[in-house]
């Protein structure tokens, strides 16, 4: 059981950092940005390049990758999304797919399709009968710190409050003298940087491959949907809830409940939880929205 909780924390840490960015951009611009997943992949590759080819220390490499990816996100906005202000959310979402495919093939062209590993050798640790590594501890700590920092940025700084104001009511924000363009750029920077950190952690824990976006995509969007789409910390909680559900499903030995044989749900059903959660939430959304209005 302890092992399941530990696995939940690790996985939700990786997913959560990426998911908050999707929710943040949804809250401000009102569309699901699929290119966000690609920012995570780009960030991970940048961190890898800086670390393995340019010999930056790993921590510095990840921080630099976050800054660079933030810059890439701002550039993508300037070149693409800022020109689509009058396009419907569905239209923007489709364009974000296009951007994602472009980034994906660019990564594939530069780094090739084979996977790469950072080659870290973290120490194995043990609490009771639960095992984890020093890297897992780092992942969870970084995830918690990243959430605290984001909370501080959004709730305790003038610019962060302005960003929330823009998300809450864009016209009112503009007529209060809040510069919408600059705030949206700031938002893209935060999104890109957080995606890069999440992607780097993901790659450090497993491996780098151009197709890692497909593995990240489903749990991230399921988390964001669970959290209510535009709720930044809801997305983080969504990641936690989703991760717990997934790890419970595949981690519990159901066979031992009924017989002497060990049987648990095969791990490939992990994704079914994500899909199932999304379906249930989307089905319940109209009902939940009515309830909220009634209150």
């Amino acid at each position: 059981m302890l092992q399941i909780l530990i696995n939940t924390l690790i996985y939700s840490g990786e997913i959560g950092i990426i998911a908050v960015g999707v929710a943040l951009s949804y809250s401000v611009l009102r569309f699901a940005n699929f290119a966000h997943i690609q920012f995570a992949v780009v960030g991970a590759y940048l961190a890898f390049t800086l670390n393995q080819f340019l010999h930056c220390p790993l921590v510095l490499a990840v921080i630099l990758a976050a800054v660079l990816t933030g810059g890439i996100a701002v550039t993508v906005d300037a070149l693409v999304f800022s020109r689509l202000r009058d396009v419907t959310p569905e239209g923007k979402m489709i364009v974000s797919w296009g951007v994602a495919l472009l980034l994906r093939s660019t990564m594939g062209a530069i780094f090739g399709s084979s996977s790469r590993v950072f080659g870290l050798e973290p120490a194995s640790l043990q609490i009771g009968d639960a095992f984890f590594t020093s890297l897992d501890v780092v992942v969870v700590v970084v995830a918690i710190l990243a959430m605290i920092l984001l909370h501080f940025l959004l709730y305790s700084t003038r610019l962060g409050t302005a960003l929330r104001a823009l998300a809450s009511n864009a016209d009112l924000a503009a007529t209060r003298g809040i510069p919408a363009r600059r705030m949206v750029s700031l938002m893209w920077f935060i999104c890109g940087a957080y995606a890069a950190i999440g992607g780097s952690l993901f790659a450090l824990e497993s491996q780098l491959a151009p197709n890692m976006d497909l593995i990240i995509l489903l749990p991230v969007f399921a988390s964001v949907t669970l959290g209510g789409l535009s709720n930044v910390f809801g997305a983080a909680l969504g990641a936690l809830g989703l991760s717990l559900a997934q790890n419970l499903l595949i981690g519990v030995d159901f066979g031992s409940w009924f017989s002497a044989n060990s049987w648990s749900v095969p791990t490939q059903f992990r994704d079914f939880i994500a899909v199932g959660a999304m379906v249930i939430i989307l089905l319940l959304r109209p009902y939940l929205a009515r309830r909220r209005r009634a209150v």
């Binding site: 003038r158 302005a162 929330r164 104001a165 809450s168 009511n169 924000a173 003298g177």
Partner: peptide, 20 residues
């Protein structure tokens, strides 16, 4: 209509009013 930041506290609303 939509004349306040509904998701923000009253305090934050006023702070954003005085953004400049």
């Amino acid at each position: 209509t939509r004349n306040v930041f509904a998701d923000l506290s009253v305090n934050d609303n006023l702070r954003m009013g005085g953004f400049l």
